[in-house]
Design a protein around this nucleic acid. Structure first.
Lengths: 299, 299
DNA sequence: TAAGGTTACGGCGATCGTAACGATC
DNA sequence: GATCGTTACGATCGCCGTAACCTTA
């Protein structure tokens, strides 16, 4: 048993058990990984993968148990390197943030700018994708931190920290009927609605509130991106339900905004990272910066 | 970085940072481990140990952080082997029990006998030592399970399961004054006492009860071993305070026994094992057997 | 001087790459 | 025939052991 074999198993999992791709990722020829896998299985005395002819088809029950330990070792190995690097130069490194458009555009600019001033030698890279994929990015080591609102609480391998709470608002062209009078589920249900795609930016809370109210929303367009929603609202296609912080007091003066705090429960944006991962000092400080910005942001 | 280097670090910790002894344990010559350590430190870019001249004197702060990951990897590596072996032949193996004399002699015989019938191919080895050392045995991989009463609750790296509760009794030659009348702290304080050594078999509970009562026990002999205590009680040296289950209805008829449940709080015997260690099936079953025996034992 | 650690050097074996082959779609 | 995996074989490089040397109690 050696660390390359362990690494191989991890990479195999990432490549859907494709030996050729795994070989490529590990910068060796395919025959090498084939042999290493055989040797490892031979050493353990039982196959870790089921074969369909020659192709690996799936992981055996034994393989699954082993794989869990493999991931532990992989992570610890990464941690060792990270700890050493952090020790050598604690102000140099990179942070890969996986987040959604809303956070990237409306929440992150300030804390990132402020962090950059303190740590000019730490590179910050952002990956944008859907909340479902965000978590996957973490597990694939493609992201260090996830900042998002949906779906992070469930995963037991993650540590999640509460970042800030916010609520939804409606936006519509100036002079729209909904700009006046009391808002209710019933009134909202009477207009065509533009909002976030399922699984994005607190959409689940919108669903929840309306399904409990008994009125069905007439959602005619769903986008991952607030700017897209606003664009179509400006075209008069309907009423937008967006995150309140996505209403820009400067550029959105042509739109009326009204708060839905009374109708839709507040959403909580969280920071998540892998439980067993070593956090470099600068990354811990970055999180602190986020939490600091969150305080201002909520008010 | 490779697994041998990881293993080396683990072994170094066990040998008080003595390279020669570490080499011996790893079945290689001393110069080999010297080089491997250098290579590893070189790879990380910083020393893990402080040197006094040439000797390793202590672990650097960096080393301590790294060491924690090293232990994780070591354990996971052992787990991989254990999982595979368990899969290949789930009824063959060994269990190393670290326990105290009292458990070994009075509690364990029945469950062990019963377990052996179901798993004749599992070897059971017992290590006896003081409760303090028991835990150390676990961490040194010299024991798989610890069964004892004192000091196991504190360690966060352990899983502990409650086994059974019991209380102390006094034993004394037939016709002793304490055989009659009500027992009290005051009366007990008036006789020379023989009981367990500090840290053994619920001794801490005895201390606790008497220090709260305001009366001081006159302990004239302390032993790790109930049989030793009984021997000296038979010689008329004083009154023994022993675990109730250590009074043998057959062989101890020359001694009077009286229960101290009213004076000394009950003690709890626990089963403990390393949190991150994979438990083979037979070992899990052995624990079940212990818990089963514990039910009978308490009544 | 004994015990612990480092450095130099030669030999061996593990693992790699090349290459030819087998299977499956 | 394109993709994926296995087997055979020669070459290389990492790691070990021997041995000589250094340092400190």
């Amino acid at each position: 048993m050696n660390l390359n074999q362990i690494e191989l198993l991890r990479v195999l999992q990432e490549t859907e058990l494709n030996l050729s791709k795994a070989a490529e990722k590990m910068h060796v020829v395919q025959s090498a990984v084939s042999r290493q896998l055989q040797l490892f299985e031979q050493e353990l005395g039982a196959p870790l993968f089921e074969r369909n002819g020659k192709k690996l088809s799936c992981v055996t029950p034994l393989g699954k148990k082993i794989m869990s330990e493999v991931m532990t070792i992989s992570q610890a190995k990464l941690n060792i390197r990270a700890i050493a690097e952090d020790f050598l130069k604690s102000d140099v490194g990179t942070i890969n943030i996986a987040t959604t458009h809303t956070q990237a555009k409306y929440f992150l600019p300030k804390p990132i700018q402020s962090f950059r001033k303190k740590y000019p030698r730490v590179g910050i890279y952002m990956v944008q994708s859907s909340p479902e994929q965000l978590i996957e990015q973490l597990h694939l080591y493609k992201a260090d931190l996830v900042i998002c609102t949906e779906k992070v609480a469930a995963d037991v391998d993650l540590i999640t920290e509460h970042c800030y709470s916010w609520h939804h608002s409606i936006v519509m062209p100036k002079g729209h009927p909904l700009s006046e009078g009391e808002l209710s589920y019933q009134r909202l249900a009477g207009y065509p609605i533009l909002t976030y795609s399922a699984g994005f930016t607190g959409r689940s809370n919108i669903e929840l509130a309306f399904s409990e109210s008994g009125y069905a929303l007439d959602i005619i367009l769903a986008a991952a991106d607030t700017d897209v929603i606003k664009t179509y609202v400006r075209l008069g296609m309907g009423v937008g339900i967006i995150a309140s912080m996505a209403y820009d007091i400067n550029t959105d003066q042509d739109l009326d905004m009204r708060d839905l705090a009374a109708l839709i429960p507040c959403s909580n944006t969280k920071i998540a990272y892998l439980k067993r991962r070593y956090l470099p000092l600068y990354e811990r400080h970055f999180i602190d910066e986020l939490l600091l910005a969150a305080e201002d942001f909520a008010s």
